[in-house]
Nucleic acid binder design. Structure first.
Lengths: 342, 342
DNA sequence: AATGGTACCGATACCGGTATCGATACCAAT
DNA sequence: ATTGGTATCGATACCGGTATCGGTACCATT
């Protein structure tokens, strides 16, 4: 079985040295037109494809950029990945994805593994890694961008939104819309620290207004439409007088809406439903729900650009983006810049 | 700035040769207990992490398994990826993902790039790559598993379902449920060849029953809830007497359902809606829609296992899995094995 | 004491590229 | 003819590991 052709074979066929062949194929200088043509012809006939592993070993770095996200079952991260692809367009970088499943041990192992491939940079979700992981990232010697969240202390650069402020802003918006008996339905708060921050901000803003959550239902399982539906059913059976429910995200909120539709409740008249993320799906729903539209694509794009632009050992900036709130029956508007608590 | 410690430095600190240090850290034989301890201690104090690039160059292969999917905005592929993670658990393999955006040039570039990293195997979506890409895969010298589809000619192994049969089966199921005036709404058929195969099978089964689609609406854009909703609105405005619509997938179908809810149509009484995939979301909908539940997780798992088990240069099997059809108000049942057309 | 076997270790040669720097050829300027 | 400069090329030395194979020690046999 014919082994993969190597640069040496291409060079031999072209009648030049390995070095000249290497230069010709990379468009580096110092190669005559005739030599270049011969090398390219030889590479063509042999079907030569370069070996990145060898190049990486020689060049001491790769064109890989490691991307670590907690999950892909939430479409949000898929859109972040799309943004990353956009951000590195024609920079020659190549993203490599890893999924942690919201588990910090998995995350640490994944990062270690990625670092052993000498990536050109790392994009990591969230700011709340354990200390050992933070140390790993700091020592790595590659640019690190943490995404989604800015409420905390980044290892290097970060780009995202303030979830604390997002929760507080939603609380104020719902109060301003006249809602007073507000409940909460959430999932996975022990692992999804950003959802927890939103809830904290939401609660704080309610307290500032002299009120509080009437009731809440939580599950330790990952968020899903199904659990949103179930938890809403039990919450409403105990507290039928709620006029608003805030959910940990849109998936849960949509599940809540589906329960209300099945139960014949008037949404948003009788009960307002508020989620988080601003999924495309939300715009197509037959009835309006409130949500916070987050710039997911933009987050990915900016993060990737930061990596692409990072000269080695340059420290990166903190980029804060602003989400906007949408309430039912209302054209999207810009979010008023509420006070940031953190 | 202190450079990354190398094996040579570890060996020096431990007072042994590079080779002994290498053996000690890999648990290869021929190392005394005392030497092993010294090396491990040295590695510990230096914070040594191996360099996969160097190992890969030396060992002529990697633990990487390249996975190419068309999109992640469809949750389906996220679930396939989860299945892949399951399938390679504790095999030491590491998946690397690439997204083609349903573009065959991007796909070819991606595959070329992945191959230049000498992966241990490749998992590619679909069977309908252009000839040049097929040639690339065949020559690659690594095990290739094509997933999702089995209607065609695999390069090596494949695991998936027959989309042609799935479409035909749904047509028969809808006819058996008494539907006669059937329309179709689809997206992206030029790129999503599997959706096109389902439609072909669907049409053929209708023809076998002596009937045909009443009307259809197509878009070249990727499938989405929003376009499902819009296309349904226009289709029904021209053909208000339809009693069933088949969609290219569940996302489109859910959009259709949302239109019907807004328009006050009785679903499924007046109009039955049929999608494809069996998304979790479908089970939580307030009204029932028909769908074909596909074994996405299983497809990913099996594909990964095939790669993990593939001795070099072993040819792989074709694995055909069966989806099942669910109709509204009906408990899930196994799909009767309809005749396969291809 | 000579022989053989086992356990452990290290020098050396790669893997497939690229950086570096010194050669060579050729033409223009002096 | 000599000098200097430019364009082109190739020999060599790595990059950081691992495979291979030939030592060396040391103990058990004969």
């Amino acid at each position: 079985m014919p082994r993969k052709p190597t640069l040496a074979q291409v060079a031999a066929l072209a009648g030049v040295s390995k070095m000249t062949a290497s230069r010709a194929l990379r468009d580096a200088g110092d190669v005559s037109a005739s030599a270049r043509d011969k090398v390219q012809a030889a590479a063509q006939t042999l079907g030569y494809v370069g070996d990145r592993v060898a190049t990486a070993l020689s060049a001491k770095t790769t064109n890989l950029i490691g991307v670590v996200v907690p999950s892909l079952s939430n479409i949000v991260f898929a859109q972040v990945l799309a943004g990353i692809s956009d951000g590195i367009a024609d920079s020659g970088l190549q993203p490599v994805f890893g999924i942690t499943g919201y588990d910090s041990d998995t995350e640490a192992a994944l990062l270690r593994d990625m670092l052993s491939w000498r990536p050109a940079g790392l994009i990591v979700t969230g700011l709340d890694q354990p200390d050992a992981t933070r140390a790993l990232l700091r020592q790595a010697g590659v640019p690190v961008v943490q995404i989604m969240d800015i409420d905390g202390d980044p290892v290097d650069g970060c780009v995202g939104i303030s979830h604390d402020a997002a929760g507080a802003d939603m609380a104020r918006a719902l109060l301003a819309a006249g809602r007073r008996r507000i409940g909460y339905v959430g999932a996975h708060l022990a692992h999804d620290t950003r959802a927890a921050k939103r809830l904290a901000g939401f609660r704080a803003a309610l307290a500032d207004a002299g009120t509080a959550l009437v009731a809440s239902r939580l599950t330790g399982a990952p968020s899903s439409v199904a659990s949103g539906r179930d938890l809403t059913a039990t919450l409403l059976s105990h507290h039928p007088d709620l006029d608003c429910i805030y959910y940990s995200n849109d998936d849960m909120a949509i599940g809540g809406l589906f329960h209300c539709q099945s139960a014949g409740l008037d949404v948003p008249g009788q009960l307002m439903i508020a989620g988080f993320n601003g999924l495309d799906l939300v715009e197509s729903l037959p009835v309006g729900i409130a949500t916070t539209v987050t710039p997911r694509h933009e987050i990915g794009r900016r993060a990737a650009q930061m990596i692409a632009a990072a000269a080695p050992a340059v420290s990166l900036a903190r980029v804060s983006l602003t989400p906007r709130i949408v309430l039912p029956g209302q054209t999207p508007r810009n979010r008023p810049l509420g006070g940031t608590r953190s």
